[in-house]
Design a binder for these strands. Structure first.
Length: 679
RNA sequence: GCGGGUGUAGCUCAGUGGUAGAGCAUCACGUUGCCAACGUGAUGGUCGUGGGUUCGAGUCCCAUCACCCGCUCCA
């Protein structure tokens, strides 16, 4: 059974040294996490099994590690600078937030025309070239609106004016520019400053004036101005600090890469030539990537700093594929399948039976993205998703995209007109290379197409942790103990019923209520369901107490402590990780720590293995507790040295999932463990 | 950014204006012949931060910071 709530996994991670909140001493920074001693082991294992399968096990792959910082031009031509920004608007009435272009797509033609009518006479669009940009096409209209609102804000916002004059002062003082040069440098304000009558009232807020409807309630919203969210982290190359938006600052600007893929595209020819590769072949890369996510969260599921494992697999374009050769669509399918099997293989411990394997498979699925979900570069994308516990539920863990020849063409300097048109690209005047390939077999020159399987390392770790987490009942609870829980639950119910009545009475009298009757009722229903299914549902009892409706109920508080203690007695927490993923592979214990010969022998066995994989020695508790501790962090094997060991040089090897023990000679240990750990 | 919630020991939390607590964890000593045993003791806190009310504030008031959940998304 996998984790029932994300909370369980988060707690385990924090207490057992997998993941710690970042910068905790200073109150923490949302979305940044530090990986502890066990976390770093596991991340390394995830990366290792991926690299082994993606690079070593194949004949058609090479590796790469490109720089995190690249020329800003890379991101201009890849489309990220223009597309990796989301203009968002809020409805002050419904408190809903939308992406502007998505919102416009859901408006009627009349509304879109109304917006155009408002924009056309506005001073923002008086220039003929600007006038042409106004059209009822949602995407074009979105960018026109963003530009328009920014101009409006520039003219009415005091703080913006102030910032502008400060910037101007710095430019003049420090860089010695004239007033005229400052005006030209400041590309953000092509419209001269005017008095407040410059914009008609409806021109100040076209979205609200044109009665743009909120899809949530179908009524016209009270909209905020669209704000641009650039999802890329900006930094500067060079130690000189320049004032914002000055030419010096803009020239030094760089982005932390939002994906590792572009580094591969730029090195396509380097790798192909130096390794004498023929298409089809692929390049794999792992590394950190950074995205200023608007909403990070769900623990390490979506973070602003994360690590990717990406493959760009270069294939023949469809128009050149001959008889019997795989098409782009077939290659796409093959990679989806390949990657899906990888996820399943490492989510399944070797001890799993057929029933377990089927259950695991049900929590992984492939999902083809709909046309309107696709990224700007993709022809088709299929996501591999995992059913995470709790509200997170189905979440993407890998995307396998058909990126066509978009990226390689976008970075090429010399591209035929028809290809630019087909890919909706502008000619690239910055690049001095053409990323094409001469196919010696077909005797043709072409820009390869690309299939991209792209997964997150940290997200993979979360996936495997959630899937491996189990709270197993190991000691059959007595009927008496079950009855105790039942009677406690009955008491909670009694008390809660009273609180519900009181709350309803207060609510009727217009008074503030301490309890939300609906929530409390929902909690009671859940509790009843769990109690009815006892003892099978034993592991759900404590989780139920976290229900929002259980808050502020006295009997619940009293119930929690003894129940927690009871649960600790009858159950064990075990991470059923695939051995390849387990942070610690082996733990060695002495049965008696005050018998020096036993201790010495145990430490000797630890030394035998520690250079091969992470091995620990522990004698700080009774043998039962030592086993449980290792179960909790997924250590697949424990070795115990006892009195018999001193006589015949055999030890007890205990397996994590089955808790079965086997007597193994010390001399056979290496064989025994290496085969089972697949090392 | 908006709405809601939470900040007390390493963790989970109790503390309803009057001496800062419990369980777990950690450490030491003793005991312990294979699945979260026991005994004794110890370590650990400017109660998120700043201000106010009060004889007295963890508790009431104001401000502020941080984190969590929801909204946009996606590896």
């Amino acid at each position: 059974m996998p984790a029932k709530s994300l909370e369980q996994v988060v707690n385990l991670c924090k207490t057992r040294g997998f993941v710690f909140p970042g910068s905790a001493a200073y109150g923490g920074v949302a979305s940044f996490w530090d990986y502890g001693p066990l976390g770093v082991e596991m991340l390394n294992h995830v990366k290792r099994i991926w690299w082994q399968e993606s690079v070593y096990a194949r004949d058609d792959m090479e590796g790469l590690d490109a720089a995190i910082l690249m020329s800003r031009k890379v991101w201009q031509h890849s489309g990220h600078e223009a597309t990796f920004t989301d203009p968002l608007v809020d409805n002050r009435e419904t408190k809903r937030r939308y992406r502007l272009d998505h919102l416009l797509k859901r408006q009627s033609a009349e509304v879109l025309e109304a917006i155009c009518d408002i924009l056309k006479p506005a001073p923002t669009f008086t220039a003929p070239s600007r006038q042409a940009t106004i059209s009822p096409d949602p995407e074009a209209l979105a960018s026109a609106l963003i530009y328009h609102y920014r101009e409006v804000q520039t003219h009415f916002s005091a703080s913006t004016d102030q910032m502008k004059s400060e910037n101007a002062a710095i430019l003049m003082d420090v860089f010695g520019l004239t007033e005229d040069e400052v005006r030209r440098a400041s590309a953000d304000s092509p419209v001269p400053r005017a008095d407040s009558k410059m914009f008609e009232p409806e021109q100040r807020d076209p979205l609200t004036a044109a009665a743009v409807l909120d899809p949530a309630d179908g009524k016209p919203g009270k909209w905020t101005a669209p704000r641009q969210f650039n999802l890329m982290f900006v930094t500067h190359v060079g130690p000189v600090e320049a004032a914002p938006n000055t030419p010096e600052e803009i020239a030094a600007r760089a982005y932390l890469r939002p994906e590792t893929a572009q580094g591969i595209f730029l090195n396509f020819k380097n790798v192909q030539r130096s390794m004498a590769r023929k298409v089809p072949f692929g390049i794999a890369q792992m590394g950190k990537a950074f995205r200023n996510e608007i909403t990070p969260g769900n623990f390490i599921f979506r973070t602003r700093e994360f690590e990717q494992m990406e493959i760009e697999f270069f294939i023949k374009p469809p128009q050149f594929t001959g008889e019997g050769e795989k098409t782009d669509e077939q290659w796409h399918e093959e990679w989806i399948d390949q990657r899906y099997r990888w996820w399943l293989r490492y989510a399944t411990p070797p001890t799993a039976g057929n029933v377990e394997m089927e259950e695991i498979e049900e929590r992984f699925r492939k999902r083809a993205q709909a046309a309107d979900e696709l990224a700007h570069y993709a022809k088709a994308t299929t996501d591999i998703e995992y059913k995470f516990p709790g509200s997170l539920s189905w979440g993407e863990i890998e995307g396998v995209a058909n990126r066509t020849d978009f990226d390689l063409t976008a970075h090429s300097g010399d591209v035929p007109e028809e290809d630019l048109k087909r890919l909706k690209l502008e000619p690239n005047k910055d690049s001095n290379q053409t990323f094409d390939y001469f196919d010696p077999d077909a005797k043709q020159r072409y820009v390869p197409w690309v299939i991209e399987p792209s997964a997150g390392v940290t997200r993979a770790m979360l996936t495997f942790l959630c899937e491996a987490y189990d709270e197993e009942v190991v000691k059959e609870p007595t009927k008496q103990e079950i009855d105790q829980i039942k009677s406690d639950a009955a008491m909670i119910k009694n008390n809660a019923e009273k609180k519900i009545k009181a709350a309803e009475k207060d609510a009727a009298a217009g008074k503030e209520t301490k309890h939300d009757p609906v929530q409390v009722r929902a909690f009671l229903d859940q509790l009843e369901d769990v109690v009815n299914r006892l003892p099978e549902s034993l592991d759900e009892v404590l989780l139920t107490l976290d229900h929002p409706g259980a808050e502020n109920l006295e009997p619940v508080k009293k119930f929690r402590v003894p129940t927690e203690k009871f649960m600790e007695e009858v159950s064990r927490t075990v991470l059923r990780l695939h051995p390849a993923l387990a942070p610690i592979k082996l733990a060695v214990f002495p049965l008696k720590k005050n018998k020096p010969e036993i201790v010495e022998m145990a430490k000797g066995i630890k030394r035998m293995f520690q250079k091969h994989f992470r091995t620990v020695y522990d004698d700080s508790a009774g043998i039962g507790r030592l086993y449980r501790r290792q179960d909790e962090i997924g250590t697949p094997y424990c070795i115990t040295v006892d009195f018999e060991s001193l006589e015949d040089r055999t030890v007890t090897v205990r397996e994590r999932d089955t808790m079965e023990q086997e007597r193994v000679a010390i001399d056979d240990l290496k064989d025994y463990l290496f085969t089972r750990l697949d090392i």
